[in-house]
């Protein structure tokens, strides 16, 4: 097989690099999740959101600006927020938007596209990511979360009812009882550790798969696709899915694909943080498998339509 050449040397090097870069992010996400569980009463979270379901979903897409969590760590945070009573549509919107609509990603995207209309590309990425996340969130807002969430992530019935009404939620018995601050800190770290272990299993599997694709599969088989406006967008989304990059760093990679048109690179930057190999596994810890597949297909179509039908016109009008 000329297109596949596996080498342990290359695999380990890529795998360890991904692990060293990504695992601390997963830990931070888990710690945020643990501390949310231990310290943040659900009424504080729900207070952020308007009572109107539509507006709540719109606001959820912007929570990443004050809760900047990358896609490696967002799943445990969302799982905890769902447990705290966040409506599923809001949780999903936050999960998809947060890795893109956050200040760290804005800075890295701006830096990576220096000399290539950085303001425009940063704005397109953040606004595009936000719109896609909101569209997906609104699409599921009338569906029963129990049909979409994995068994462990389904909030119990009383919580779910309250969540959908976006009312203040009763907290877990342990969270509301009178415990010292130190006990809460220890409890937060224990919960974060459990969150981390749950999440890291999927992350490591994703990193391993991505490392095989990164090092063993001949990358040239994808290059001829670059010349077609449609195929280039599809190809870049596939590459994003395979490369499994972190959203804080992927702009530097996207900027190097200079043979691909800019809408295709935006497809890479919007689709990748929302759905890639590691997220396929990470999402499996939160959502049912069929939900994960439907989410992947839906995102592929929405981002594809955005980048094929709309972005070329936007870039043409804005002179890029």
């Amino acid at each position: 097989m000329n297109w596949f050449h596996f080498s342990w040397q290359n695999f380990w090097f890529s795998f360890l690099a991904l692990a060293f870069e990504g695992l601390p992010f997963v830990l931070v996400g888990s710690l945020i999740s643990g501390f949310i569980a231990a310290f943040v009463p659900s009424r504080v979270i729900t207070r952020f959101l308007p009572k109107n379901r539509f507006l709540a979903t719109l606001v959820s897409g912007l929570l990443g600006l004050i809760f900047p969590v990358c896609e490696c760590g967002v799943v445990p945070v969302v799982r905890r927020l769902l447990d705290k009573g966040l409506p599923f549509s809001c949780g999903l919107t936050y999960m998809l938007a947060s890795p893109i609509v956050n200040p760290l990603v804005a800075i890295s995207t701006y830096a990576a596209f220096r000399g290539q209309h950085p303001e425009l590309n940063t704005a397109v990425r953040l606004v595009g990511g936000y719109l896609v996340a909101v569209v997906v969130g609104l699409s599921v807002s009338r569906l029963d979360p129990a049909r979409l969430l994995g068994g462990k992530a389904i909030p119990n019935r009383s919580r779910r009812r309250a969540a959908l009404s976006i009312a203040a939620m009763p907290d877990a018995p342990d969270a509301s009882r009178d415990v010292s601050a130190m006990q809460r800190v220890i409890g937060a770290i224990q919960l974060a550790s459990d969150d981390f272990i749950d999440t890291a299993i999927y992350f490591m599997i994703g990193a391993a798969v991505a490392s095989v694709f990164n090092t063993a599969v001949d990358q040239r088989i994808m290059l001829p696709l670059a010349s077609s406006p449609v195929l280039s967008v599809i190809a870049m989304m596939l590459i994003a899915g395979i490369l499994t990059l972190c959203s804080t760093s992927d702009a530097f990679i996207a900027a190097t694909f200079t043979t691909f048109p800019i809408p295709a690179r935006m497809a890479f930057l919007i689709f990748g943080p929302m759905f890639d190999f590691k997220l396929l596994f990470l999402y499996s810890g939160l959502l049912k498998k069929r939900t994960v597949i439907a989410l992947g297909v839906g995102l592929f179509i929405i981002v594809g339509v955005l980048c094929i039908a709309f972005l070329p016109a936007i870039y043409a009008n804005l002179g890029s």
Partner: peptide, 15 residues
């Protein structure tokens, strides 16, 4: 273990 991840018999973590 100072806090439980189970609420009303439903647990977030199995590990």
């Amino acid at each position: 273990k100072s806090m439980d991840c189970c609420v009303d018999g439903q647990c977030i973590h199995s590990n």
